[in-house]
Each structure stands twice: as C-alpha cells, then as structure tokens.
Design a protein around this nucleic acid. Structure first.
Length: 222
DNA sequence: GGCCAGGACACCA
DNA sequence: TGGTGTCATGGC
C-alpha cells in the first residue's frame, strides 16, 4: 500500500469514526440556496446562533430573496442583521454579493449553478467580502459543487492529529483533503460538518490521536 | 467580565 | 508573504 493510499484510508477512517459517533449533521442548515449563501457571509467569525437570529429577522420582513435583498435599504439591512455582529461590514458584503448575482447572472442563481466550478470560484473570490472559505461554502453547500471547505476547526483538529501544519495556506490544506479523498459532494459536505461539530464539542488538547478523536473529557482549548 | 465564535481585508514592513 | 489591527453581537 502506498503512502497516498494509507493517507486516504486514514482520512476515511476518521470520517467514519465521526459519522458513526455524531451521526449525519444535515448541513447546511438553510431552506434555500440563497439562504445558505447569505448564511455563509453572516457566519464569518460568528457563532451560528447569532446568524440564525439575523436570518430570522430577514425572513420576518420577507426579504430573503434576490429582489428583496437588492432593494432593501442599507440602513434597514444593517439593523436586521445586527445580531450576527460586524453588521456594517456584512451589510456591505451582502449588497456586493447581490450586485454580483444581478450583474453576472441576471439575478438568477440557476444561471450561477451552471458555471464550471473553478471559474465560478474565481468570480466569487472577486466579490468584496467573499474569501476562500465563504466561496467554498457557497459552492459546496448552496450549489453542490465538490470543493472541500477549510475553516479554523479543520486547521486545529488536523493539526492536533499531526496530519497537517495548521499554519499552511488555505489552498495547501484544501489540497491535502482533495488530493487524498474521492471527489464527492456528499462526502465533502458531511466531512466538513462533522469536523466543525468535533471542534465545538470534543477534547481540544494536543496531541490528538485517531483513537481519542472522540474524547470529551478535556476542557483545555488550544 | 473576559473570551470566543463555521473570516475577510487593509495596511505595513 | 507574513504579521497585526479592525470589524461587533451575544452566550457562557
């Protein structure tokens, strides 16, 4: 068995450990592609509970649509998403994203879904306020594109496992997973969701080994 | 009352 | 390209 095969097997073993222990996470929590996209922006460096409040505010005003978010005033948008934090920044980001959807795809997400993945990724990264993680979350969770999402939990958990350097650039981390795992939307979806859940709930000490990836008796967070 | 949460970006050397 | 400051609410 080659090095690559063993790495692939190790990644799949960890995935199965997490999946069996926690069960499917049912990501992304959201009822429509647009809601997922907006949620991806609102959750930047923010607790998801706060994001849910902001989304509920938008829904209560019937504004969770391309048209609604395009026409709503900056002031009102800012006040509605206030619970998610960074509300001034995020209101601009949502506005910039709507401008992008309208200009590039005639305001229709269906047109967006038809674009080749890497080309679309490049376009998304050109929108102010959308970085690599947000772009990939949109691609994977809203548009069913096979891209592996890297976030702070992924860095920490796999650094503790001794499998990656947590300081490596985003693309290096993403390559580590995508070069060693089959290109599969459902796998990437569930794996990332499980990593986040693991990071939130499980022992955060170093080192973390495969056999204790599910331990809960440890309070120390690195 | 401090710390952290499913980041991104401007600015600096 | 790498480090640092900024943005900000809400739960614990």
């Amino acid at each position: 068995m080659g090095v690559k095969d063993s790495l692939r097997n190790k990644l799949l073993r960890i995935y199965n450990l997490l999946l069996v222990h926690f069960g499917p996470r049912g990501w992304w929590p959201g009822n429509s592609p647009l809601e997922i996209m907006v949620g991806a922006i609102l959750t930047q460096n923010t607790n998801w509970v706060n994001v849910e409040k902001a989304i509920a505010n938008l829904q209560s005003e019937n504004l969770l649509s391309i048209n609604g978010l395009t026409k709503v005033s900056q002031k009102k948008l800012t006040s509605l998403i206030r619970p998610s934090g960074y509300f001034n920044q995020k209101a601009k980001k949502i506005r910039a994203f709507m401008d992008f959807v309208n200009a590039e795809f005639g305001g229709k997400l269906d047109n967006m879904a038809g674009v080749e993945t890497q080309s679309l990724r490049g376009k998304l990264l050109g929108v102010k306020g959308i970085g690599e993680e947000t772009a990939d979350s949109i691609l994977l969770y809203a548009l069913d594109k096979p891209v592996f999402v890297i976030d702070a939990y992924t860095r920490r958990v796999f650094h503790r496992l001794g499998m990656v350097n947590g300081k490596d650039p985003y693309g290096v981390l993403q390559g580590f997973f995508m070069d060693n795992l089959p290109l599969n939307v459902d796998l990437y979806n569930e794996y990332h969701a499980l990593i986040v859940h693991q990071g939130k709930t499980v022992c955060q000490r170093i080192p973390l080994c495969e056999s204790c990836v599910l331990e809960t008796e440890c309070a120390k967070r690195i």
